[in-house]
Amino acid sequence: MITAITVAAIILAYGFTILNGIHDGCNVIATIIASRSMPPRRAIIIACAAELIGPLFVGTAVAATIGKGVIKFNYINASGNIVSVVTILAALVGAICWNLLTWKLGIPSSSSHALIGGLLGAGIAGFGLAAIDWHSLIFKVILIMFASPLIGFGIGYIFMKLSIGIFKNFNPKINNFFKHIQVLSMIFLGTSHGSSDGQKAAGIITLLMVVGGMTQEFVVSKWILLSSTFALVFGISLGGWSIIKTVGTGIYKVKPLHSFNVQLSSAFVIFTSNMLGAPVSTTQIVSSSVMGIGSAERINAVKWIRVKNIVLSWFITIPAAGIASMGIFYILKLILI
């Protein structure tokens, strides 16, 4: 029975990753489409290619944080323990439910934080508060969760101010230059996102294989990393158009110059976080970068009412997904354990 549940959970992990691609991955192409710098089909093709390249250049530090840095590994690492498998299954279901709700509402919340919230809630339900690695959760997740959008906002603001200072006397046709150069900035953002979010699913799948008795140690293999990234890319190819609209026009009406600065600042923050093993939110960083570039140019033109709703979703995602996963764990426990 445990093997069947493990296989079902692994399939669900790939399903979560596809939804992650639809929900979060569309941030990679949101501004380039909204600024009319590139047709949607071409943007998706280039972004998907960049996402696939990402895992080739970065290690698996983020996968280790997701797999072993929320629920303590010694608590969940009991090969053949059905409670461990059901805990991860409940975490995935809770995260998926939250993603579907925010996707339906067009709110750019974080799939990464939904997954972390799911692991947190299900982990507490399955093993108790002592099973949570609070040090890793606070310093690698919570602090980074608050810091990364602030850094994204700050870098976006600085990049935009520099651009205004450098290009203010240029012919308006300079926007045509930024339409074309965005290919490079989008590739940088796509590879950074692919290396980050592909790892998150890979960490969960590897953990499932350990607790389900399919492998002996937590080592993220290349095939798991690549297959997770393929699932992510498939989700991006489907396009999360409501979220693209929110990020591209719902915060600030972006033009090619804005879009270039958003992509460059976001990619820088995400790539640096990957090196540190911090599972940051692409959604948060891209959205905050849009806020930064908008504030640098015309602060009154930023749609702060929409920003308030987006920021609120950042705060409630982890607890909401956690509560959902906790409830789902108790339901699954009655059925499966």
Rank of each mutant, 00 (worst) to 15 (best):
I82L: 15
I82Y: 09
I82G: 02
V83K: 15
V85H: 07
V85W: 13
V85L: 12
V85D: 11
V86K: 09
V86P: 12
V86A: 05
V86F: 11
T87G: 06
T87K: 01
T87H: 02
T87Q: 07
T87L: 15
I88H: 00
I88C: 08
L89Q: 05
L89A: 10
L89D: 05
A90F: 04
A90I: 05
A90H: 04
A91H: 10
A91L: 09
A91C: 14
A91N: 10
A91Y: 06
A91E: 11
A91F: 13
L92Y: 07
L92F: 06
L92S: 14
V93T: 09
V93R: 01
V93H: 03
G94F: 03
A95Q: 08
I96H: 04
I96G: 02
I96D: 04
C97A: 13
C97G: 00
W98R: 10
W98G: 10
W98H: 15
W98T: 04
N99F: 12
N99R: 10
N99Y: 10
N99M: 15
N99W: 14
N99S: 07
L100T: 06
L100S: 10
L101I: 15
T102W: 12
T102P: 13
W103A: 10
W103V: 00
W103G: 05
K104T: 14
L105P: 10
L105F: 14
L105K: 12
L105H: 09
L105G: 12
G106A: 14
G106H: 08
G106R: 05
G106S: 11
G106K: 04
G106N: 11
I107L: 15
I107G: 05
I107C: 09
P108V: 00
P108A: 02
S109P: 10
S109Q: 10
S109V: 10
S110I: 01
S110V: 01
S110W: 01
S111F: 02
S111H: 00
S111R: 01
S111V: 01
S112R: 04
S112T: 15
H113D: 05
H113S: 14
A114R: 01
A114I: 00
A114E: 00
A114P: 00
A114S: 15
A114V: 01
L115T: 12
L115Y: 12
I116M: 10
I116W: 00
I116E: 11
G117C: 04
G117H: 02
G117A: 01
G118K: 01
G118V: 03
L119C: 04
L119M: 13
L119H: 04
L119F: 14
L119N: 06
L120F: 15
L120E: 07
L120S: 07
G121T: 02
G121P: 04
A122H: 03
A122E: 06
A122I: 06
G123T: 06
G123W: 12
G123E: 05
I124F: 11
A125F: 09
A125E: 08
A125G: 02
A125K: 06
G126N: 07
G126I: 02
G126R: 03
F127Q: 07
F127M: 08
G128C: 09
G128N: 11
G128V: 08
G128W: 06
L129Q: 09
A130S: 15
A130F: 04
A130D: 14
A130R: 12
A130Q: 15
A130T: 14
D133A: 15
D133Q: 07
